[in-house]
Design a protein around this nucleic acid. Sequence first.
DNA 1: AAGGCCCTTCTTTTT
DNA 2: GAAGGGCCTT
Length: 744
Amino acid sequence: MVDLTRLNSAQHQAVTAPDGPVLVLAGPGSGKTRVLTLRIAYLVGARGISPDRLLAVTFTNKAARVMEERVSQMLGGQKQALDGIWMGTFHAMCARLLRREARDHLPIKSNFIILDSDDQESLIKRILKEMNINDKTVKPSSVHAAISTAKNELIDPQDYPSSNYRDQIVRRAYLRYQELLRENNAVDFDDLLLLSVRLLQANDVLRRHYSRRFQHVLVDEFQDTNTAQYELVRLLSSENKNLFVVGDEDQSIYRWRGADFRNVLRFEQDYPGCVKILLEQNYRSTQTVLDAARAVIDKNRDRTRKALFSERGAGEPIQFHEAVDDRAEAQYVVDTIVSMVASGKAKPGDFAVMYRTNAQSRLLEEAFLRSGQPYRLVGAQRFYGRREVKDLIAYLRLALNPDDELSLLRAIGVPPRGIGDRTLDGLRAVAAQNRTSPGQVLLSLGTLGEESPFWAAFRGRGAAMLADFGAQLAGWSSAAENIPLPILFDRILDEIAYREYIMDESEEGQDRWDNVQELRRIAYEYENRGLAAFLENIALVSDQDTVPENQEAPTLLTLHAAKGLEFAQVFIIGLDEGILPHSRSRDDPEEMAEERRLFYVGLTRAKDRLYLVRSLRRSSYGSYEDSLPSRFVEDIPAWLLKHSGQRRTSYTSRGFGAYSIGGYAPQDVTWAAGTGQAKPPSQQAGPVVQPRYQPNYRVRHPVWGEGLVVDSRIIDGDETVDVFFDSVGFKRLVASLANLEIIQ
DNA sequence: AAGGCCCTTCTTTTT
DNA sequence: GAAGGGCCTT
């Protein structure tokens, strides 16, 4: 029934594993998705388990969709073969759980709205202003990040530390933030997880109910789970303990979102009897690609070493190209693709171009446009993050729930309707005095006019303006659940004259209107499911869900967005220090290790050919700056690379004997410029045994001037000194190269 | 109240 | 080099 004959033995073992905890460590290209889908098909088809007893968590909605299709196919092509299964992202699953249980068990109503990160940040901005905190000293984004991290770690506001000034600020902001969310019947992304965990922890009846119902729990991309997600999975599988997780520590790239690949190690500890299976055969890449990838990733610690192998043979060498500047870098990509296509060696759809930051896509797009070549772009500015889209979503949310103050504040100002800050302050004050929401005040003004008890509270013009808007709102609100969504959508557009507002003379006007039309088209798809379902899905879609399916043109995407995908030919551009690894990771070894994994993910997307590209100088801010080759490229053995373009800068010209934490050290290997040949370490002073520099020594560096020694130790026979320089801050130096002078 | 202009300030990655 | 904030004018 379910065909298991084409599996290798490790895959077969995973798919048919007996009940109990199972950990599958799956290297890139090792058939991970296949194993997961077959496992589900096996459970349903061969073990006779009803789909509604299964919970399968994926990382993106798209992954869930793909998996559902494939399993259905394996089970004979009927859609209803999987009826009742819970399959989706953590966030979608939690939203579903919370909406079901909100009424009886939670501090929110089941029609809560889900804030995206823009919403969160503007709310935090408001709170800091309210707290009279100068948002230059404490940045809203960092408070946001701190709160998000806390939630991912399951730390409630009252448990947040207050040991220093910054923590105290964050703590107060966090308390107030949660208060405002509850007042607005809103949750943020992180709350979806946190509240779900709290729900199951606090209510043993519910925990038992769900964990009995889910006879098997399966989790994809397990290395990207955070503490909250780990706990959630643990709770949901607590009765049956049939927990099947698939992951790869080396592909963990969401640390900044709270993910911790150590959850893989933790799994082994928490489930001591678990079956552990390594998938090491790679069916995707040539051996050259794998050798390069392995050389890069083997420098990381705290991981299960995997011996990835391929039966595909060595294949083509890796092309390493150095362009004069970032414009030439982009042009090289386009030219190479064009000539490969012209010579019949490849189709346009075979190519992907990957980069560290979204900003890098701009020059690529320009180069493609200049050459008249089509391309498809993943992500960049999120569709649902665009202003015009968010405007309309605010109106729709408001129609569904007039108490939604956050949406009201947005909608009331666009298009401008003569209601300014003063009137708005008045509105909120009146609402607060009467213990109701601004939306209710508006509705009252709109329906009762001068008869409204609130009318007198506003001075002449303000009241009229508010009443006009209130009347519109009353109309949408009563229509929200009674007329088809597309009609409501058009009615709002029409009544607020949005088209006229947006289609000004500017060039973007048309683009924006096109986006509105796209949103309208999506609204049509929800004609039968209604407004609430539409808004729910909008809140939970990701960029990776919107990867275009057409295979006709090269794909441009970030390295993060590339995870899980594969392409015949892959370009990774911007292989310079400061870009990849990103400068923000320079001083943190953990982050540096993650940059390395990110590069590893990129490398292992390639089936046949890899092009690594950098440029000698690139524009940052507005002016050009010289850049140095990425340390990661230097980790790839020379014999795997073919060099082209400008001559590479040799190591010796890099820095002043300084290197950053967690990465390359000058004594590793030195390259002779341009030859592509490795030569043995050069500047090797005799091994040092005792540190010469002690903490608190004052030292002078020829370039950075004076600084204070923070730490010093012997690494690989040379002394490594951490210095905090007055001019440039923290640097890590190799003593034999740095030429430090001890002052006192 | 709203729009325009000039200033600064940053730039990772995204469920 | 873009985007947002502050300040000015209408």
